[in-house]
Design a protein around this nucleic acid. Structure first.
Lengths: 110, 110
DNA sequence: TTGAAATATCGACAGTTCGCGATATGTTAG
DNA sequence: CTAACATATCGCGAACTGTCGATATTTCAA
């Protein structure tokens, strides 16, 4: 049964490769300056595509694509109101993750 | 002075674009299945390049490149011991972020 | 010294991502 | 109806990423 020598590990945490793949995809979706900013904004209020685009300094269609990406990933949901579309946070853990990111990079804490 | 109408926001969180760019780069570095697994392992113990490579199911040189990426980003540091090289966590916030990721994707909690 | 082990580096390739311009869809007003 | 507005989608090209094979470096052992 070939007991592979365990050199340094005391106990290795279990890790389902598929779960890591999924987590990586989700993080990759988040790992973009504009998308991070969008998430931060949506955690604090309700915004239309155009408002998000303007704040981020990108054209509307670019913002729309970022939003679609995050929606496909399950991070956001959208809701139409007349001609406008409002996006909102769908994944509760985004708040925790953004808190980590914020406390590290935008030492907004304090 | 064109007071731009604030439609939906109550108060927008401040956001330094450069900070978001840096955060995004850091997250992007983390956003890879192998690198996530490596970080998880290093949070629990001390491993050589070869051990990490074997656990992740990738050739040694590939693991080495992933480690170098994370080192360049400031996430890890390395320490030589004979022919082996041990990597370790350099960025304290990695523990928090991995906790978020773990609780979402590897509901190892409970 | 020579050889083998552990890790690192390099060049090249396929695959992906990003942002753009143009166009398409959907909605409201006149 | 038509026109204007808000958002979404498509195709393209430039830039980047991940992986591989081959080679280089460092270290130990005999």
């Amino acid at each position: 049964m070939a007991a592979k020598s365990k050199l340094t590990s005391s106990t290795k945490p279990p890790g389902d490769p598929a779960a890591f793949a999924q987590a990586a995809e989700c993080l990759k979706t988040l790992a973009h300056p504009v998308r991070l900013r969008i998430v931060q904004l949506l955690l604090h209020g309700r915004y239309t595509v155009g408002e998000l685009a303007e704040d981020c300094g990108v054209p509307d269609n670019v913002a729309s694509e970022h939003l679609r990406l995050m929606q496909r990933c399950g991070l956001l949901t959208s809701e139409r109101d007349g001609r406008r579309v409002f996006y909102q946070i769908a994944e509760p853990h985004l708040e925790d993750i953004m808190a980590c990111v914020t406390s590290r990079f935008l030492h907004t804490g304090k």
